[in-house]
Every structure is written in C-alpha cells, then in structure tokens.
Design a protein around this nucleic acid. Structure first.
Lengths: 339, 339
DNA sequence: TTGAAAGCGCTACCAG
DNA sequence: CTGGTAGCGCTTTCAA
C-alpha cells in the first residue's frame, strides 16, 4: 500500500495478467469493456503511474525532444521555446533544454544525447553542425533533427525559417520609401549565413534603388548592444553620416538609438533606425522600435510539427519559410532635409 | 558493425564479462589497469554509447531535473534558467522544461512527472502547489523539490529567493532620499506573496519616513505593461499626482515611463520611476531604468545546488536569501519643486 | 479477448 | 579484481 504500485500489483489484485493491464492502460490493444473499467479504476485507486524508464527501455523511445539554442540567455528564443514546448506537450513529448553556447563540443554532446536515447529528436537553433567539416552530413541527415531559425550551410536537414534576405530588403525599402538615401547597416557576426543574408538584403535594396553602397556604411557588428553603440559612433563621425541605420537585430538597434540620443540626435527626426526580430518589449521602447517581426511562436510550433513528422519516418520534410512582417513604429520617419 | 553496440558486444569481443565492462565504463568499481584501457579503447572503437533508458531503469534515476516556470515567455526567467542549466550540466543532469502557465492542472502534471521517474527532482518557480488546499504538504515536502524566486505559503519546502520586502523598502528609501514625498506604487497581482511583500516594503519605507500612504497611491497592477500604463494615467490625474512611482516589476516601469512621456512629462525631471527585476536590456532603456537587480543566474545555480543536496537526501536545506542590489540609473532624480 | 513468457540493456549483488 | 546472474518494470509477440 505504501510502495509504488507496479503493473504486476494491479494485475494480481484483479486476477488478470500484466499484459492485459498494460494494454488497458496504454489504450492500445483491444481489451473487453468490463475488464477495461476495472483496470482503470484499480489504477486510479492505487494511484498507479507507469515507470517511464521501463517503458522507454522497452519501447525504445524516450518521448522527449531536445531543443538546442546558441544562448539560452537570449530573449530572442523565448517565444520559439514557448511554441516548441506547446506543440511538444500536445503530442505528449517533453522538452529537454540544450544550451550550446556556440561551443562545437557542446553541440556534439547534444547529438550524442540523441544517440543515447535521451531524446527521440532534436530541434537545432545553432548555426553549426558538429563534425560537419568531415562531410558527415549523410550520417546526420539520418538523425531526426530539424533546424529552426538558422541555416546550416551544405546541409539538407529539414528546416523552418524566414526569408532573411527578403525581410531585410523590405525593411530597407521602407527607409528608401521615406526618402532616405544614406542608409547604413550594422551587420551581425559575418560570415554567418543569417547575418550575410540580412546584409545582402540591405545591399540589394540599395542597389535596386540605384543608391550607392559605400563600404563605410557597412559596419560589422556581433548582435551586441555595446558594439553597436561604438559602431554607431563611427557612423556618426563619417563626413557624410547616414540618415538611417538598419541593424541586423533589435538589441543593436537599441544600442544605436541610445548612442544617437547620447549625441543629441533625434530619432527619427535626425536619424531613422530599423531593427530585426521584434524582441520582447521592443514596442515599449521610446520611441517604439520599427523592426522586422518574425512569427517566433509559430516557428517553434512548426519546427516541432516537422520534427514529429521526421520521427515518424515521413518523407524528408520540405523546408518551410514563414512570413515576416515589418512593424513600422516610431523610430523611422521621413529623411531629414540634408541641406 | 552497423548495429548499435551494447555492453555485451564489447564484453564478448574482449573476452571479459559485461559486469566488468560496466564497471570500467561507469568509472565506479575497481577494474585493473590493463583491462580498463582495453575496455575503454574497445568502447571508443565501437563508438559505444550506453543506453540511458536501460541505465535509468536499473539505477532508478533519470539524471534529469524538471524546471517549472509560470510563463516560459517571460524574459525574467532567462538568467535563472541559464544558471540552473549550467549547474545541472556540471553535475551531469539534464534539464526538462516545464511551463505551468499558472494552471494548477499543469503543475500537478509536473509533480506526476517526478513520480513517474521522468525527473529526479524539480525546481519550482511558480507560486502555488497543487492540492495544497488539502494540506498535502507533508507528502510534497517528501519530494525532491526546491522552490526558487517564489514563496509558497504554508509550505516548508527548501527555497532560494531574495528579500522582496527589504529590496522594495530600500528602493523607496532611495526615492525618499532624493526628496520625494509623494511616492506611488503599482503593485503586482495581489494577494500573491511576492507582490504583497514588495507592496509592504513600499509601505514600510513611507511609514518610517513619516510620509502618508494615501490609498490612491497604491494602484493594483498585474506585472503587465499595458495595465501599468493605464494605472499611471490614473495616478497622473490625481489632484496631487505623485512625483515618483515605484513599480513591482520592470515591465510595468517601462509602461509607466512610456505613459509619462506620452503625457509630456519628463523622466526623471517631473517624475522618477523605479522598477524591480532588472530584466534584459533594462539598462538600455532611455533613460536607463533605475531598478532592483536580483542575482538571477546565481539564484538558478543555488537552486540547482540545493536540489542536488535534497536529492542526495541531505538534511532539509535551510532557506537561502540572496542579496539584491539597487541599480541607480537614469529614471530617478531629485524631487521637483512642487510649488 | 486474454495469458505466458521473453526480453529491452544495463547494473549490482554475491561468489570466487 | 572479475564473472555469473538476477532482475529494474514494462511491452509485445505468440498461443490459446
């Protein structure tokens, strides 16, 4: 009575076999009605809970998935994690948290966890693959892994993401539409794919509008606020400072706005600023940040759905591209008169 | 060669017993040196990885812990999660993510996961306990659970947190020190313990300074930005509007600053604002937010350490109170001359 | 529709 | 120090 009941206990108590109890409780397998209810009732009465380890060992599945991000301290992932967690729960999966910290060894460890049976599948939000240099992709592609948000070069793992190029291009088009002709860009950490795509989108928009792309207008950032502040400073001290700055993420946009203010420049009066990601409270900034919004929760959910498919051995999932939206808020305005 | 090797395979290959292999690989148990290296080498050669489910079943531990938060979308938890994850990793544990969404049923589910052997212990960051009304605490206290950040009334579960009362009081003292005499407070969702403590800290500071505590100066919030904006509006329209507003969290402080600005009031020229939590990018606000900073990552690490102790059956851990720090930044300044 | 029995892969006990 | 061996608790054939 005090010990944890096992399936055998309830079988004994009811005079049926463990097999029947198992079938009744797991819902699978036909069990006659009278027996079924009796078993269910007894299980409830004894407060029976199946032992997951035993079940996992037998079924060779853990019913959990691994979600690996580059930096768990980055609020950017919050909504995505929320989406993943939600979809996982609905499908009966638990979510294991992985934090790669951009460390290849750590990433390799997480792959090992997959092989160990720690998790049945993995959602990767890091830009790299361990041992990728060895062209080991075929081996990896066989694992139930879905890539979200990031792009992994030279890999054809199923993935769900946004069109970073188009989103960046559209953001810059918005600035051009406001009459800006001097539009600078603070990139993410090049040569990462995501940063490159956003940068190329900026370039493309300028090019199609016949605007020059002076090299000094492309400042190489790293997604961090402080760096962006410094780079913004350099931009301001150019002989022809930009009237608009497009940042590869919101955090850098915050830094830029801060720095501009510090220099007594008005946003958007003197300089317009556009971010990317629409992180938590971006709209609560003052002025609210104009930025590219990604459907993060949906991306998380979609990634999890895709992973469920992959784990079911479905045919290789087609890459999914989710729509983005340019949120035009308070940090962008008409280009100032330059003379 | 293509199949996943098991312990038996490597035992056969080397002509030793599975038991020896197990001992050699798990580090425990003495194994003679020549054998040891041979086994290790063979394991590496075969790319052997132990099956976690089997191990878990046998050892009756899952080597993972469950971390349950109220709302995984809230950036407030980020650093704490990071701390937990770090400490867990170092101790060889994985972290399972739980999101209670303030739903008692969900919370109960997570407790069940503990009993199921899904996890060996749990770090709870929700303010409630399932079935607590039934006075079931003795049963729960027996489970390896550590409460972090939150306080659970009528429970003596081990916990690590901050002194919300003192931190709030000190924040308000800071405002009083700046000459403010009309200091309002926007509370969290009362009657939750944390909100109450912060509110009481505010009251205590006013009382000890001999300042009045007009009931209209206590506005009941819910930690949300929008609500705080509205409440700030009410405050502004009082016949005697406050010259300082202490908010129970940063998000509400953002809302307040926003609303004040919208009304053409200067922060901190006309009104000073203090937040609580020091969330991500609070210092990047303009002006940077004066707020109470909690050592969130340390809290996470401490909670995990404490949990490790509890899981080891250590004597009930003493509650741990971590220090807070009032970060005096740009949203607080001398009280304006009221006449 | 139910029961018997064979493991899943590992660890830990008990002998030697 | 090493080997034999008995399970951990569950699911799932295979027969009845």
């Amino acid at each position: 009575m005090n010990e944890r009941p096992k399936i055998k206990d309830i079988a004994l108590r009811l005079g049926v076999s463990p097999a029947t109890v198992s079938r009744a409780l797991s819902g699978t397998g036909l069990v006659a009605e009278p027996t079924l209810s009796r078993i269910r009732e007894a299980a409830r009465a004894l407060n029976y809970r199946p032992n997951v380890s035993a079940r996992n060992l037998r079924t060779r599945r853990s019913m959990s998935v691994l979600m690996v991000v580059r930096d768990i301290g980055n609020p950017f992932y919050l909504e995505v994690m929320k989406g993943v967690e939600q979809a996982a729960r609905e499908a009966g999966y638990s979510v294991l948290m992985g934090n790669s910290e951009n460390d290849p060894d750590r990433e390799a460890e997480y792959f090992d966890m997959l092989r160990d049976g720690h998790a049945d599948g993995m959602i990767l939000m890091t830009g790299k693959l361990p041992g990728q240099a060895e062209g080991d992709d075929t081996g990896l592609a066989a694992l139930p892994v879905v890539v979200a948000l990031e792009t992994i070069e030279g890999s054809d793992l199923p993935h769900v993401q946004i069109d970073n190029f188009a989103a960046a291009r559209d953001a810059v088009r918005h600035l051009i539409g406001l009459g800006h002709t001097r539009i600078a860009h603070i990139t993410g950490p090049l040569p990462e794919v995501m940063s490159t795509l956003r940068r190329d989108g900026w370039r493309a928009a300028l090019a199609e509008a016949g605007l020059p792309v002076p090299p000094q207008y492309e400042q190489r950032g790293d997604y961090l606020l402080r760096t962006a502040q410094v780079l913004c400073g350099s931009l301001c001290e150019l002989p022809q400072p930009p009237t608009a700055i497009f940042c590869a993420n919101d955090e850098m946009a915050y830094g830029v706005v801060h720095e501009l203010r510090r220099r007594g420049l008005d946003v958007p009066g003197h300089v317009s600023v556009v971010g990317f990601d629409d992180i938590y409270l971006s709209e609560a900034m003052f002025p609210p940040l104009t930025t590219v919004s990604q459907p993060r929760a949906e991306i998380g959910r979609a990634a999890m759905s895709m992973l469920l498919g992959v784990m079911d051995g479905d045919t290789p999932a087609a890459p999914l591209v989710m729509p983005t939206e340019l949120k035009i808020r308070g940090t962008t305005g008409p280009a100032p008169n330059l003379h």
